[in-house]
Amino acid sequence: MEVQVLYNVFHHEAVSLLIAIYFHIVGLHAGCSIVSITATLLGKTEYKPVAKIGAIFVIILFSISPIFLLTDLFQPLRFWYLFLHFNPTSPLSWGTFFLCAYPTFTGIYIYFLFKNNVKWSKIFGVISLPFAISVHGYTGFVLGFAKARVLWNTAVMPSYFLCSAMISGMAFMLIVALIRYRFTYKDKTVEEREKDLHIIDLLAKWMAGFMILNVFYVFSDITVMYYHTEDAFETVELVRLGKFSFLYIWVDNVLGNIIPSLIIIFKKTRKSHLLLLIAAILASIGVFVMRYVMVFGGQYVPLS
């Protein structure tokens, strides 16, 4: 059968690059804050530096993330309508709520963390942990609820997004921890060094775990889509073999997930801080590419 389109109209993407960046940054700070809070809750004093580093970056990243969100709006001056009108079926509405609640509680948590008030920081850590998860989790639902696009509209999307957020957050903290260790180990005692190395080791291991989970999500997502509708088939072919295959399969999954996790799994390579740094950087790039592919690959296939 020969089909030749003589006339059709061209639509611009609804979700822009700004949103892809926003997704990435939100994932990043949510990841950081989850790591920070978890470190605090575990209560060991050696985790404290990690918790503090995480907390600082949460503040920095959180303060820039809404810029992307606002500039993407066609009516940016009306952003406050989001607070006036709540639509329970819209994940963007939930997001507004989380984006307001999360900095409040996390702010208090960070305050007590830096005050070295263990009890209260733990309490507010417990309170802000679900918000930290939700503030990134909702973005997964944002894409998941857009039923037009098969690449988004999957049940795996929210947890996939959370998982990659954890990777990006941990990779970021790993980079910071490695740099910190590099510049401070000379002044430290052997014991302190041991502690730092232990943290780095722990972060890397956790990251590898999430990476393996991430690869599993990708695998199940792609394979299930092969058994799905025509749109899904076309889209998955696009990310597997087509225009986005290089970015998605090679950059995101092989370079961003599989190779770093292999580096971490093998003890020999894990001990090399340079390789660990490379693994963390690759993981960060991989996560960003994943957001990009999700946003643009999802919208690549036409709907009309």
């Binding site: 609804a14 009516q75 009306r78 963007l92 857009a146 037009a148 709907l303 009309s304």
Partner: peptide
């Protein structure tokens, strides 16, 4: 009331919404 967040555009399976 519309704030122009484009979410409806992304969600519409018929791609009939535009900015």
């Amino acid at each position: 009331r519309c704030i122009g967040c484009n979410y409806c555009r992304a969600a519409c399976p018929y791609n009939v919404r535009f900015a």
